Amino acid sequence: MTDEPTLGEVVRRFEDRLTDVRDDIQQLGRRLDEKVDQKVYDLRHETLSTRVAALETVREKDAEKVAATRRWLIGAVIIPLVAVLMPVIILLIQGAST
């Protein structure tokens, strides 16, 4: 008989379990409130995919501009500079050898 709980102890244990269940239900409610709807998730994912595609396009255009700038630099600056300096260097080498 001593192993059996008293009626007051049974009520306390029951109230503790009821409080635990209420807390669990409140936590589930909070988690459900924080959950993102699938449609919203899909829209965000689609928007991000569009933005990434746009950024990749811009990056490719920038890479083309850099390549065009390099070609311009070589064609408009370096080659004429070499063309002007080569005769001067050749004349200096020939003049130093005479």
Rank of each mutant, 00 (worst) to 15 (best):
E64N: 06
K35Q: 14
Y41T: 14
Q94S: 13
E46F: 11
I78H: 04
R22A: 02
P80Y: 02
I79A: 03
P87L: 01
V84H: 08
T98C: 03
E4A: 15
D3L: 15
V77I: 08
M86K: 13
L73A: 09
V58G: 04
D24R: 15
P5C: 00
L55T: 01
V66W: 01
P87E: 01
A76V: 10
L81I: 03
L18S: 05
Q94A: 14
V21D: 07
K61Y: 02
T47Y: 15
L73I: 05
T2I: 12
Y41N: 12
L81W: 02
L81E: 02
R12F: 03
Y41C: 06
L73C: 04
D16K: 07
R70V: 08
L85Y: 02
E34Y: 02
R44W: 14
T57C: 06
L32K: 03
T50L: 11
T69D: 10
K65E: 06
V11P: 00
T19D: 10
D23I: 01
V58M: 01
D3Q: 10
E4F: 09
I89F: 09
E46I: 10
V88K: 07
L28Q: 12
L91I: 11
D33R: 06
L28R: 05
T2N: 13
E4K: 15
A54L: 09
R30Q: 11
R70H: 12
D20K: 15
V52I: 15
T50V: 11
A67H: 04
A53G: 01
I90V: 12
L92P: 01
R17D: 07
V82K: 00
L7M: 14
T57E: 12
E60M: 06
A54M: 08
A54N: 07
